[in-house]
Amino acid sequence: MFSRYRKELCLLIVLLFVAFWTIIFSRNREADNLLTALLESRFLSLRNMENLSRQIGMYGIFSLGMGLVIISGGIDLSVGSLMALLGTIFFYLLTGGHPWIPGVHWSAAIVILLMVAALIGLLHGWLIAKIGMPAFVVTLCGLLGYRGLAQTMTRDTSLGYYDSVHSVTGLESFLTGKIAGMPAAFIAFIVICGIVYYVLHLSVFGRYLLALGRNEQAARYSGINTTLITIFAYIACTVLGCVSALFFALYTADVVPSMHGNFFELYAIAGAVLGGCSLRGGEGTVVGIILGTTVLLVLQNMVNLLGYDSSFSKVITALVILGGVLVDRFEIWKLVSFKKTKTA
């Protein structure tokens, strides 16, 4: 158990270190004693915790989807652009402001949006698994195409949902409200973590996904329908991206297609890779992906709270990812040299 989650433990230590650092340097300097000073730090303030947990929820949901695709041995570069496109479509569905898109009630809009996302995932998976196109190319086209499409639809302006055809009261409390004092996005994230954990670590599907990521051919020779499983992974990625897109759209309240969700696919890949997913596939845990994403967001939070140069935060993020993967790579290197002596 301990050795199985070795990677995750290291990551947890990094996370705690960053959190403590932030707590210490954002402590309440007017407090009487150190303990209250730390407890009243800006990091631990209700507002920051709420904000941070919402961020973790929103970023975590699509990172989990990305994790599944990476574990299958693929990659999805289109997530950020897709979120811009879905956000745009969502607001048009609410306002009916586009000639091709009817205005509907928000609950119907959510259902339609999820279906659109699933269809796009199906298309990705079909092109990759059935037609045999490289995942990188297919989703790179998505990266360019979806954002371009969103920009074309809006004539490259921002889009809100103020003049929606139906009431949106329920929608706002549903997506941006709080449940038991926690942001809805975070609650949704927890639920989705549970589902993905079940699927990846306990179900037959998860076993097949890991086998396929490690050795697609051996999985196929075992009678596993690898095409179907790959397609499922891409659908999971776009559907989870869609759930995130809903939260993001409401959170930002207006979608600027040229900016919305920019580089999110890279944050997701970074989180998953930092969390121990291997880009060669077949490796990764839900706990790892959660921790990887959280570390990146807490780092960002630290930079904001402590007033470090925000441009420099990118450098710090880059170094953390590089360091994390370097450690991982070191292990892999040992593994590979071991295998060589075996097979020679």
Binding site: L210, A211, R214, N215, Q217, A218, A219, R220, Y221, G282, E283, K339, T343
Partner: peptide
């Protein structure tokens, strides 16, 4: 065996 019979890491 290594390429199609087994998933070596499993």
């Amino acid at each position: 065996r290594k390429a199609s019979g087994l998933v070596l890491e499993m």
